[in-house]
Structure formats: C-alpha cells, structure tokens
C-alpha cells in the first residue's frame, strides 16, 4: 500500500453556488491511491453537488479539481469519464427499457470500438467484441449476484431496487475506473442487503488495480466498516476530517447532525 502513496484526487477551494445557496464552500480534500473515503453530512450539505461538479455535470464557481496529476476542473462529463472516474447516482439512473447487458455496456463506452464503419460493416469483429464483453459483464455481475448474471438479457425495469443498485455499480466498474463515486448506494435497502453490497464492492476492489472510492452514505455502520477516512460536510463546508471514530465523536459533527435533522 504505502509504496504507492500517490494522490488520486484533490479538491482545492472548490465552490459551487445555486442562486443564493452555497452548495459547496471552499471545499478542500485529498484522496490517496486505493483509499475509500466516506463523505457524510446532513441532507443538503453538498455531497451530491461535489460529485456533480467533479463529473462535469455542473461547473465549479471557484477552486480546482486535480485528478491523477491533471487539472480537470470544468472538464466535460465525457472527458472526466475517459480519465477514469465512474459514478452512480443517488436516484438510480438506469435505462429501464434496456437489458442488463445494455446498461452495463453503456458504462463500458471507452473500451468499445465506437467507429461508425466498424459497427456497420465489420460485423464479424463486432460480434467477437460483443462476446468478449459479454463474458466480462457476466463475470462481474456474478460477483454481485449469480442469479442476476443469468438474467443478463432481461430488461432492467423488471428488477427489484437492490438489483438495480447492483447493476448501476457494475456499469460503473466495468470500465476499470481509477475512482468510483458511490452516491448513497444503500438507499432503500435493508441492513442485510447493504452489508452484502459492500462486501461485493470490496471484493471487486481487489480485482481492479488501484481503485479508490468515495462513498456518500447515511448508513453509519457501513461507513465505519469500510472507510479509511471520513469527511464531513455541512452547508457546503468541510467541518471535520479523519478516521470514523474520531469524526463521530467530534462535537461540531454531532451538532451539525442534530441541527440538520
């Protein structure tokens, strides 16, 4: 671990406003290679906004984002993905009409041959690529749930919430990103399901070299179990950073949560 203690991601003074609301206020953070960081804070504290600014959905009003040594502030979403950032969404955003395989392949965009002539005329090569990616998707899905892997050609709309969450995570992981952003993956799940899901994520992390994760979560048990460090946001400002134990006993944090509820 320590031999490659390289900084994967750094926010410096990141700021984003919506009208009068300051959703992110001079937010600084760093994330090392292979780390899992928990990003917590009361509702509306700017967690999702930080993901949105990082992935290029919203532009930053100030500050910089550095990823793997490059300044990626205000890059378009597509370029951020190409650089190796993949995410899930707080409100699941899958294409419900499409099959599981299709949804996972959307996440694999950068590794598929998108050439127009290739796709239309080189059917043999395309077929080989499809089959190759099929087995990879199948393998990945199997880690999360073997039953799900068998339903790979079913439409996503027919699945339960927990399966949809799993597929969203597979969609993010299939392209071997360097940074995975998970926005409340356990929303709408039981404790047992949450635990399973996290185990699966940890298992996959072993497979992908140097994968770092930022986890936004309200479920503190999960945060405590898996994160290397925690960052607490309140009204867009970082109020505390450190190991979960220290953070949980911090006075400011307790106030923020009590005040926020």
């Amino acid at each position: 671990m320590d031999q490659q203690k390289e900084t994967v991601l750094a926010f410096r003074g990141l700021t984003r406003r919506f009208g009068g609301v300051v959703a992110l206020n001079e937010f600084d953070m760093e994330l090392d290679n292979g780390q899992i960081v928990g990003l917590i804070g009361p509702n509306g504290s700017g967690k999702t906004t930080s993901f949105n600014v990082l992935t290029g959905i919203y532009s930053a009003n100030g500050g910089t984002i550095e990823f793997l040594g490059q300044d990626i502030t205000n890059w378009p979403a597509q370029k951020v993905y190409e650089a190796g950032v993949a995410r899930t969404f707080q409100r699941s955003r899958l294409c419900l009409e499409l099959s599981i395989f299709d949804n996972v392949m959307i996440g694999n965009h950068k590794r598929l041959n998108q050439g127009i002539l290739f796709n239309i005329f080189q059917r043999k090569a395309l077929k080989a690529q499809i089959e190759e990616n099929y087995s990879e998707a199948h393998k990945l899905l199997k880690i999360f749930d073997p039953a799900l892997a068998e339903k790979i050609f079913d439409p996503v709309g027919s699945l339960r919430m927990i399966d949809r969450r799993r597929i969203e995570i597979c969609r993010a992981l299939i392209s071997h990103p360097r940074l995975l952003l998970l926005d409340e993956p356990s929303a709408g799940m039981t404790h047992e399901e949450t635990r399973e899901l996290m185990d699966d994520i940890l298992e996959v992390r072993e497979m992908i070299d140097g994968l770092s994760i930022i986890l936004v979560e309200h479920e503190m048990g999960m945060i405590e179990r898996v994160t290397d460090k925690c960052i607490v946001l309140n009204f867009g400002q970082k109020i505390c950073e450190g190991a979960y134990r220290d953070v949980a006993s911090d006075k400011l944090v307790q106030e923020a949560y009590l005040g926020g509820e």
């Binding site: 979403a77 009409e97 959307i106 965009h109």
Partner: peptide, 29 residues
C-alpha cells in the same frame, strides 16, 4: 442499415442518448 445500427454499439449509444442524456454523458457518450 437500420438493423445493423440498432444491433451495434451505435444503437446502444442512440438509446442511451434518448433515455438519459445526463447518465450517458457521465459514461463518455
């Protein structure tokens, strides 16, 4: 032509664009 497009990554990109532009953009489309 229509069939080949539909049954290729191009068709998948088309569908992704139609169904959810934001998610599609976050996956490089």
């Amino acid at each position: 032509l229509m069939r080949r497009i539909e049954r290729s990554w191009i068709g998948l990109n088309f569908d992704a664009v139609r169904l959810d532009e934001t998610a599609a953009a976050c996956y490089g489309i």
